[in-house]
Structure formats: structure tokens, C-alpha cells
Amino acid sequence: MNENNSTKLDRFLWTLSGFKSSIISSCGIDKFHAKIISVLLIIVGLYAALAWTFFFQTFSESIYIPVLAGLFMGFFIIAFDRALISSLSSGKTNYFSLGFRFLLAILLGVFLSQPMILKFYQPEISREVEILADKKVAERKVELAALYKTELENLESQKATLQTQIDDTQNLLSAAESDFKIEMDGSGGTGKYGYSTVAKQKEKILRRYEQDFSSIRQANIPKIEAIQTQIDDFNNKVSNEIDLYQSENNVFGTLIQAEALEAIIDNDASGTLKFRFYLLSLILILIELSALIAKMLFKMESYKGKVSLIEMEEVKTIENEKEIILTKMDELKTLRLESEVALQKQYFEDAKEVNNSKLAEHLQSWKTDGEGTAKQYWNAFKDKLTLERNF
């Protein structure tokens, strides 16, 4: 079957897989292999588009961005694999590009398997995410407490000092009041009942402590309240920041889900989840490389030989054209040189009589000139009648 007998679908599949339809159409077995590679390449492109769309959908609310990004990645994978298959088919293997493609497949396989595992184990991931979220909130509280620790400790210290002054003065007042009472009823002190001289002195002490206590309360209570207001402001600020942190992280992103997956894998004693993760990664890698693997399995020597022959013919044709052009240039150079030399000879032959006449006129002028020197006429002779001025 030649190219004229092939269908449009055949030519499309051959071209898509990186084969030249005019050549592959004359290869009996290889054209069938090329169709298989093309179908696998389409599957790889669709898989890449769907996988990348799914991946971008995990952190994008818009449906258009994941779809466009997925289509772009699918087109890129098809174009890159097509270039590699075309280079392999022509017998010129670029091992650097091939290694890059295998590395890309491995990275994408591991990279894309993660969101799939997250989807498969969504209930377990959600529970683990909530635990991690609570831990992160607690860590945030500790960070904020450490951030405002110095200010809070300073305010608490000032408040405690002011309250200690009030408590100490109140203790002195209570002790003075007790001394005065037992002095008055005779149960203590001097043992005299009634408002004696000692009782009067203790009363004065009591009244002085009452004044001190009242003064200290009036001075310290507003300060304590002001300090407590500042402490409450700091606490409210910490509480508001915690609430803000929780509201901003209410929707769990891909990173915390990946962290939850890692925690589940570490806690999975049976190793089932880890095994499934690696198995899924391997499956995705093989799907991505299926078209290249098929090309390596199909050696396609017939197509490769014809391509090699065409390239040899083209190279030989170019070399022949180069040789013809160079030969023409050499021949033209020789003809041009011969033509110019002949013209120059003819010029000097025809110029002999003119030169002799000019020389005679020059010598006659020297004979009639009584002042001119030999050097002057020699220089004039060289300027007018010779091609070289200095020799």
C-alpha cells in the first residue's frame, strides 16, 4: 500500500507518531506498528491532560484554569514524545533527551500520584488534617504567647507590686485595729479596760493606718485597673489573631493534606498505604512511557533503513552540488584571470607608441629648459610615464 491508497486517518496517525507518511506507507509491517504507537501516544496525551487537570483542580476554584493547564500539559507531552519517537525512528538516538523524558515521567508519576492518593483516602486524610490543624493552632498560640511574653510579664510584675503595697498596708491596718480592740476591752496590751492613754495612742496609730490604706488604694487601684486593661488588650489581641488564623485556614490546602498523608504513611504499621502509593506511582510512570516503550520494542528496521537511505542520498546530492559549484567557481576564476592578463598585455602593446612619443616630448622639454635639473625631470618622468612611483 502506497501513500495514495492510505486513508486520511492512516496519514494522521503516522504523522502524529512522528513518522513521515510518504515513507512509512511503503513499509509493510512498520506502518502497522506506527499506528499502535500513535494510539498509545494519544492515550498518553489524554492521560496527561486529565491528570494535570485533576492536579490543578485541587487548589483552584475556577474550572477554566485547570482545564487549560491540563490541555497545555497534554499537548506538551505529545509533542515531546513525538520528537523523541521521530529521533529514535531515524536511527539518531539522543540519550540526553531520552534520559530527560524518563526523569520527567518518574517525577510526574510521583507528583501526580499524591493527589490521587489524597482523593482515594479522603476520610482518613480529613481526620488527620483536623488533628494537624489543632496542633498548628496550639503552636500558633505558643508563638503569640512568646511574642508578647515580655510585655505581659512586665505588666503582671507592675500589677503585683501595686497589689502588694495595698495588701501590706491592709495587713498593718488589720493588726492596728486588733491591737486597739484588745486594748479597749482589756483582753490584751496593758490589760486595762476602757479608753486609756495607751488605747488613745493605739487609736491614733489605727487612724494613721486607715489614712495610709485609703491613700494607697486611691493611688494604686486606678493604676491596677489600667494595667489590667492593657493585659486584657494583649489577651484579646492574641485571641483575635488565633480566630483570624483559624478562619484563614478553615479550608485545608494541598500542603496540609500532603502533610497529613505523610503522617498516615508513617503511622501505617502494615505498610499497605505506602505500598499502594509506590504502586500507583509506578503505574502512572508506565502509562506515561507506554508510547516510548512501544517504540523501543518495535525496532522498525524497514522504516529506519529507508530513512537512512534517503538521508544518504540527500547528503550525497548536497556534496555533488557543492563540488559542482566549487568547480564552476574555480573555472570562472581561471577564465577571469586569463581575460584580465590578455587585456593587460594588449594595453601595454598598444601603449608603446604613445609612451615613446610622450618620452620624446619629455626629453625635448628638458633640452630647451635651462634651469631644470636631472632629478626633477627624472621624478616627472616616473610620475607621468611609469606605474610605480618609488623604486
Rank of each mutant, 00 (worst) to 15 (best):
N5P: 00
T7N: 07
L16M: 05
I24E: 04
S25F: 01
K31Q: 07
K31N: 07
I36M: 06
I37C: 06
I42M: 11
T58C: 06
E61Q: 15
I63F: 06
V67Y: 15
G70N: 03
M73Q: 13
M73Y: 12
G74I: 03
F75M: 10
F80Q: 02
L84T: 04
L84Y: 00
S86P: 08
G91L: 05
Y95V: 06
F96K: 12
S97R: 11
R101Q: 14
L103H: 04
I106E: 00
M116S: 07
Q122G: 05
I125Y: 03
R127L: 15
V129Q: 04
L132K: 08
T150N: 13
T150A: 12
E153G: 10
N154Q: 04
L155R: 01
A160C: 02
T164H: 15
I166M: 07
Q170A: 15
L173F: 11
L173P: 02
S174H: 13
A175K: 11
S178M: 08
F180P: 00
K181C: 01
D185K: 10
D185N: 15
T190D: 10
T190S: 13
Y193K: 11
Q201A: 02
K202I: 01
K202R: 11
E203D: 15
S215E: 14
Q228T: 11
D233A: 14
I242M: 13
I242N: 08
Y245M: 12
F252T: 11
A263K: 06
D268L: 01
K274V: 01
F275T: 00
L289I: 00
A294M: 00
Y303C: 00
G305L: 04
E319H: 12
K322D: 11
T327F: 14
L335M: 11
Q346I: 00
Q346H: 10
D350C: 01
A351Q: 08
E353Y: 09
V354N: 09
H362T: 13
F381P: 05
K384H: 09
L385P: 15
E388Y: 08
